[in-house]
Amino acid sequence: MGILVARRLLQSVVVILGVTLISFIALHAGGDPTYLFVSERATTEEIALVRQALGFDRPLHVQYLSFVADLARGDFGTSLSYRQPALDIVLAAFPATIELAVFAFAIAIVVAIPLGVVAALNRGTAVDGSITMLGLLGQSIPNFWMGIMLILFFGLNLRWFPISGHVPFLVPLLNGDLATALGNLPRTLYFLVMPGVAVATYSLARNTRLVRSSMLEVLGQDYVRTARAKGLSEQVVVVHHALRNAWLPVVTMIGLEFGFLLGGVVVTETVFSYPGIGRLLFNAINQRDIPVVQAGVILLAGNFILLNTAVDLVYARLDPRVSLTRGRR
């Protein structure tokens, strides 16, 4: 396990350097970002002064190397828009996204597994058909449309849930203010319902279909038949023999999915005015706030690597045939 973690750490350095280089090139490909930071009536001389103040007058490779050198010292730079440390800004937005991702993730797992199992156990019946159809529908609906529909129906017409906004739970918790965190928790969950459902719909549908197909494959295996022949109850057969083995592809998928949820909820965060990292990065890209984009990208890439490593470890735990150092035996 130690070797795996060391190898992943080494890979992560290469990956992070790669993503910073790609995002750096992409952000500069659109031209000189200076223009976003000057008045629309600024003269050429004033623009030149601002360009110098922001450091964009230096050659691109010098700017990049300077950024990497600062990064090695733990300095992610200062946001061009907010004039504050870029990492602080990204870290401030991260807890809200974690709350949304965990909430959506929970919906996508907790609901998908029983639905998938029920569909598999009732293969070919109306129950299976309905669940499969709902799964198809869930994967077909764009999440921004889903979000707007939820807002119009549950937010505006029924007034059951808040239309937009966020109540923090993790921030007070991380600040050691447990009382505030717990006091906020019911409202945090209340505000998370609609964006959480909008984000989770696609994953829920996909996971349901994945669990169903995985279960169908496992239910046809000899050892399941043997278990049934031994006279074990259906519950034991399904939970202890079939589901445990059906888990493997699901675990791989959901592990990666959490990484996507952390960085890929831009549209939902925008629709629900949710102050998370997706919206922050979207705005930063539009504003060409390069330090914030870089800090956000590094954070997300680091998380993705971390999750991937965690998935590998869990996978090995679930399937003893998998070796962490030599691949599958």
């Binding site: 707007i148 807002i151 119009l152 937010g155 505006l156 007034r159 808040p162 239309i163 937009s164 906004g165 925008t270 629709v271 629900f272 005015s273 102050p275 919206r279």
Partner: peptide
């Protein structure tokens, strides 16, 4: 001052009285 980037969400918040 609430930051609500999406136009339809702003309109919904107004019509909901928020």
């Amino acid at each position: 001052w609430r930051i609500i980037p999406e136009a339809s969400t702003r309109a919904a918040e107004l019509m909901a009285g928020n």
